[in-house]
Design a protein around this nucleic acid. Structure first.
Lengths: 209, 209, 209, 209
DNA sequence: GATGAATGAGCATTCATTCAT
DNA sequence: CATGAATGAATGCTCATTCAT
């Protein structure tokens, strides 16, 4: 079940993964059969097992790829001198990333309650995101502009929650009431609220007009 | 499939519903069989069908009850003169409500991607929550203390998102990194960040110390 | 499971039997549940078993009554001196009898292939009918008017078959192509064809050896 | 659920159909489970569904084949110049056909009361048979030899009824009292009675000795 | 006599997975 | 590498039947 030897085999494997992402997005994980995945990749069900030991392992494989990309994301620092722009842009990029992989985020949400392994992957990734944010808040010049009565870890969790759920609603649930707005406005509003919310009262913490 | 005629029957029906909430919380919707539900209520599988046509209908019944309670919740107004306390308390109560029914919120999240009916129930309820918040923001004395550069509907969606996902993480996923904190702190921090985040820059909008 | 003691009980039992005949006619035996029978008699399923040990026994009970009536029928002799009228009338009466109990004839047909007991009841009754006919043919003045090249038992079976299947088509299957005709025409045509068919070519020629 | 791709698959499908015909003949439709059919074809129950969506559809498939054969049958004309031989032979062939497919005729009879689709198939086929007969009676030289007081459609229905029920009794119910006779005698007697029965009184209408 | 509750066996159907070709 | 066939375990659901009240 290692990487296929021939280029053709590698192509087939990639097609299965692409088909999975597509079908999961359309119908959710539980409503996709191995036979559907295989058919969407131009195969019969039996052939699927030449590439993945089972549906669950294929899913983990997809999530592993997703995680790699997510962690690259996390490595991008938040710029202290123009925090509002930096957070806005970072949020915006995250939204785009989320949208691109909405199928997988959907799968994560669908399965985390019953699949400990997936729950763990998600938890790890969330913690990394939160850590990145709270890290930025405690470093250098930023720290002094933040109100003293807040638990920064908690504040980071709140930002993360707001971001993640807004994205879920918009890209996975595709709630039209939410999805109708320009995405840029959402990113900026989110960043604005949160940054203003954690800033100390002095005018210097105000976001730029 | 109507209401049971005898007290015994009503008790059995209630036991099935209670068992469902318990088992859904433990294992998630997909991993609970009709036979499990029946057994947890002290019955054989066949008897289940005297009370509900199938697992899905039982779930809708539970969600209907949940919705009723949620809408009572929404009717409680946010007090304009002590917004921070009012939002804190309201958030806190919502967290308690969410925890009490964490199984059902988990089911909603698990199924919304594949079950249009449940997705609709959730969307309706979310919209009502958001409307309640944005309604409070546009009324009377509150309105003038809010920064002018925000879309209030969007701001309301952000508060709702933050609240809902924080609760989901804490009560459904039971992420220990999040669940360890005093709940009161979470409620207050959430309310504080958001209210400060939407307030206009004048000192009068600042939360009380 | 004997006859109920009270008049009320006897009434209930009769109602169940009437309901069975009605429901069997509507939907066929296999599509009628014990609960349906009970409900149609104004009872719950449990109460059914106070009157009959099971659905099969109820059916046999109905068929026993039918058989009694059928045998009374068979006892009526065919009049030799006006055979055509006699056969016509007898056929007509049989058609009326069949229509009145079309539900039970339907049940007999539906179950005879898989229920040996019912098959036996039917076979016995058919034999009696055929015997009555062939008996009439071999008696006295009739015999000499019948062609000599026929097996009379076989001729009797043919008459019986024609009668029974025509009735089945018309009253059980309710084939509109068949049911549209005046019943009297059918009775007379059937009798005419058959009697002419078995008659010797001229009154004097070819008496039976 | 299309035609199987390999010879092995086609063989399996054919084996299921053969097994069905055999088991239906033995026990009747209602007493045959999908698992029985599969087992009789050397399969597990699950494999059945690769070939047919359910037992009912398999049955319709069998009946479709039967209908095709029946309609070939109907196309054979009845020869006017030796009507008695022609009808005898035709009847005889029909009996052989009926015997060969006695299982399916049994299923038709068992299900027609509760299955409208099957009832319709049967009705159509009966009408075709009757039409063939009455058609022969109204054509050319035959017409003038038939008594004027008969409704020919009705006469055709009578012949059909006699034929069908005699066959049913003999080949499906396997009534020993009926089945003991030489089949040739039955065919000839049936044809003789009916043809003599519908003939006008002139000697020319008499069947040949 | 009747009810409503509960049982338990029976059966259909789905689907991940294996395997010979 | 891929197919088509087959397995077998799960699981949902129905319904005749029993029983306490």
């Amino acid at each position: 079940m290692v990487q296929p030897a021939t280029p053709k085999g590698r192509g087939t494997r990639a097609r299965i993964m692409a088909a999975a992402e597509e079908l999961f997005a359309e119908r959710g994980y539980a409503n996709v059969r191995v036979a559907d995945l295989a058919a969407a990749a131009g195969l019969t069900a039996g052939a699927f097992y030449r590439y993945f030991p089972d549906k669950h392992e294929l899913t983990l494989e997809l999530l592993r790829e997703l995680t790699v990309e997510a962690f690259e994301f996390i490595r991008i620092p938040l710029e202290a001198d123009s925090l509002i722009d930096s957070v806005t842009e970072s949020t915006h990029k995250y939204f785009e990333f989320y949208e691109r992989h909405r199928a997988l985020f959907g799968v994560i949400v669908e399965l985390s309650q019953s699949d400990a392994e997936i729950a763990e992957i998600w938890a790890t990734s969330r913690r990394a995101f939160y850590g990145r944010i709270s890290g930025a808040l405690t470093r250098g010049s930023v720290a002094e502009r933040i109100r003293g009565d807040l638990n920064l870890d908690l504040a980071a969790e709140m930002l993360g929650s707001m971001t993640e759920f807004y994205a879920f609603q918009r890209f996975v649930l595709r709630d039209p009431a939410v999805a109708g707005r320009p995405l840029g406005e959402a990113s900026r509003t989110l960043a604005t609220i949160w940054l203003s919310g954690i800033a100390s009262a002095s005018p210097s913490a105000e976001p730029r007009p």
